[in-house]
Write a protein that binds this DNA or RNA. Structure first.
Lengths: 144, 144
DNA sequence: TTATCTGCAAATTCTTTGCACAATA
DNA sequence: TATTGTGCAAAGAATTTGCAGATAA
């Protein structure tokens, strides 16, 4: 697993530098789970108050490209970041905005299909699936 | 299908009013496919130059809640709107940002599972699935 | 020492809100 | 005519950029 190699090595392999800021951001994402850049910034600033939100954005982008963290748009507004190995799938209702989590094993068949068909490695660990929840479906039927 | 009932009736059933702006926005979404609010605004303004971007946002929100259009976050930045019956699924690579479309029938098994398990009606017509594309997978392996 | 990274300030982009006027039913 | 909807201006989030100085290798 990539994380186990250490952030330092992952960066160096690509000619990039290890910095305290980068470690702090990765740690913050890991401990918070599904946090916005803003929340991650606050956590980092508990340890290093001078770290700027700009650095948070740049670092999250970097970690995302390195595959160490992932982001999801759970709704409108700021995206939500997690470490790559935090596993769950979200069902987002586009009517009422409610969110429920389901085990990501339910996506295993789809992961297999896309791998064979398109060579695409689906990351089921942070997916947001949009649709209509049970309650809103019921309401819709009452109107018709 | 909801669209066939006509926008007017759908609105009236909920005590809302039919306006030229609402029809124009729906038409624009339908003809553009995967357009941002900005792009939709431009299209609407070709016919009705005084329509304000605020109205575009308000109307897209409304049409989304009515289930006539859907939005997806294909990456960072503005979301992308389509009419509900425009069917495809996007594979978004989180490394290079590339997007490929796949037929949404591939998701039928998952749709069935969620319907039975959670009463959740997954909307597979505008989904964005995040992962790593074939090319980026290859590059990662070369580095290791 | 030198290329990379960071902090800061300012600019951009995207979206929402308040309110007076206009349009629908 | 009673709401509901729209345009406008302004405010507010969220995010990006340019650049000089700091820092890792």
């Amino acid at each position: 697993m990539e994380t186990a190699r250490g952030l330092r090595k992952t960066l160096h392999d690509r000619g990039m530098r290890m910095t305290p800021q980068r470690q702090l951001v990765l740690d913050a994402v890991r401990s918070l789970e599904h946090a916005t850049p803003e929340q991650i910034c606050q956590r980092v600033q508990e340890t290093a108050p001078t770290v700027n939100i700009t650095t948070i954005y740049r670092t999250l982008d970097l970690l995302d490209r390195l595959g160490l963290v992932r982001h999801t748009h759970l709704g409108h507004g700021a995206p939500s970041y997690s470490v790559e190995d935090h596993q769950h799938v979200h069902l987002v209702c586009h009517v009422c905005g409610s969110i429920q989590e389901i085990p990501c094993e339910l996506l295993d068949p789809l992961v297999g299909t896309l791998r064979e068909r398109d060579g695409f490695e689906l990351d089921a660990s942070h997916l947001a699936l949009s649709g209509t929840c049970r309650d809103c479906l019921k309401q819709e039927q009452e109107i018709e």
